[in-house]
Design a protein around this nucleic acid. Structure first.
Lengths: 213, 213
DNA sequence: TTGCTTATTGACTGAATGGTCAAAATGGGT
DNA sequence: ACCCATTTTGACCATTCAGTCAATAAGCAA
């Protein structure tokens, strides 16, 4: 069995690509993700990515126009995936179940794609210069909509009266922490077991108790 | 009124320093904190720090041996401060009040020292190469001790039975998020108000409900 | 095989980077 | 004023960086 991949998002009318191109672009993006997610954009070097992918530096630049283009491609592929779990929250569903299901989807994202999570964290730490548009438009609209749903649920007494924005932020914080701070968690709990071990049960308990009307 | 400073931690028998040295070292560290906390160690440049501090690059290196030495000094000054809130947790106190007070101290740290918080986050994202020792020894011991206290409280029925490690991690995640992801929060809620607005009340509500026996 | 497209690389460039050094400027005590 | 230690800087260096380019090698259809 294989993990779901952060999808290619290739447009139907996109550039025709040979098998070699598809394969090598993927290899490069994979090595680049490793480097960008640990050192950030400025701290990453093409030489590191070249070494990680087993290709020569000029060869990287045969497949991508620039260091920036590689980074942009990674972010582009990520952003859609990042929004999806929140999009799936159903206003017509059971409030507690919906929120906990959203938390669980986010946690699984952090567990299955920790490098993508750290890439995102790095971008935000730098002030989000490359995804400011995405955050101010797509993400903000989605959060505002969801906050209204949550507020309505609270108003109707179907969940405890909590600040909807902080409720969303808390889910982001708690789930993303297991990817972004995995190094710290590993050093404290022992690097042998999964940093998210026990997290799902704990978070379920937390949100069950927080949201009970 | 002035914020409490991340202290100098100068040893009593440390090197004698003139007024100019004390002042310029502080100016350099302040500018360096800004740069390191947003771009990470590798992404930061001495030229940026020089520009930010208003000093020439050779002048930086008159006060510090190297880029690494500046970074190390910042981390050293930070680590003690980072441990203190957890150290203050009193095993003899009221369980709920103690845990919530710890959360509040951490939140204030994130609010008052967001750059230090991001410096720490950057270090962990990179795999914590420079503070691995600190985490594996000082931090781990303190966390283990605290986890035992929490477990005893849970055992005695004085708080709800929760995983003590995940409880600690949750406090780290929720409080640190308001500093590390401040850019994102600002873009969603409007950059005009403090990202931690309303956070204290929300987190108090969260932990009150989570910990109630 | 031939011929053409795609893929790969060694050698290079100009700019940026961390760091050095000797000389010059400054500061403070007398 | 003088002196000497502290501070500051311009010029410089070796290395690393992103990116270029012409030449070569590999893939593939006929």
């Amino acid at each position: 069995m294989s993990l779901p991949q952060i999808s290619d998002a290739e447009k139907p009318s996109g550039p025709r690509r040979t098998r070699i191109q598809q394969r090598n672009r993927q290899i490069i993006l994979d090595a680049a993700l490793e480097v960008f997610s640990t050192h950030g954009f400025r701290g990453a070097t093409l030489d590191q990515i070249a070494a990680g992918s087993g290709l020569s530096k000029p060869n990287l630049l045969y497949y991508f126009d620039s260091k920036d283009a590689i980074h942009r491609e990674l972010l582009t592929r990520l952003l859609g995936t990042w929004l999806e779990p929140l999009r799936k929250l159903d206003p017509a569903g059971d409030p507690q179940a919906e929120i906990i299901a959203y938390m669980r989807r986010k946690l699984h994202l952090a567990r299955d794609f920790p490098r993508e999570s750290r890439l995102f964290a790095n971008e935000i730490l730098q002030g989000a210069p490359r995804i400011e548009d995405f955050i101010r438009n797509d993400l903000r609209d989605l959060v505002d909509d969801t906050a209204q749903v949550l507020a309505a649920w609270a108003q109707a007494g179907r969940i405890a009266p909590v600040d909807p924005y902080h409720l969303i932020f808390s889910i982001w914080a708690l789930t993303q922490h297991y990817a972004d701070f995995a190094a710290q968690i590993g050093m404290i709990r022992g690097a042998d077991h999964d940093p998210t071990d026990g997290a799902e049960a704990f978070l379920e308990q937390l949100y069950t108790r927080l949201l009970a009307p």
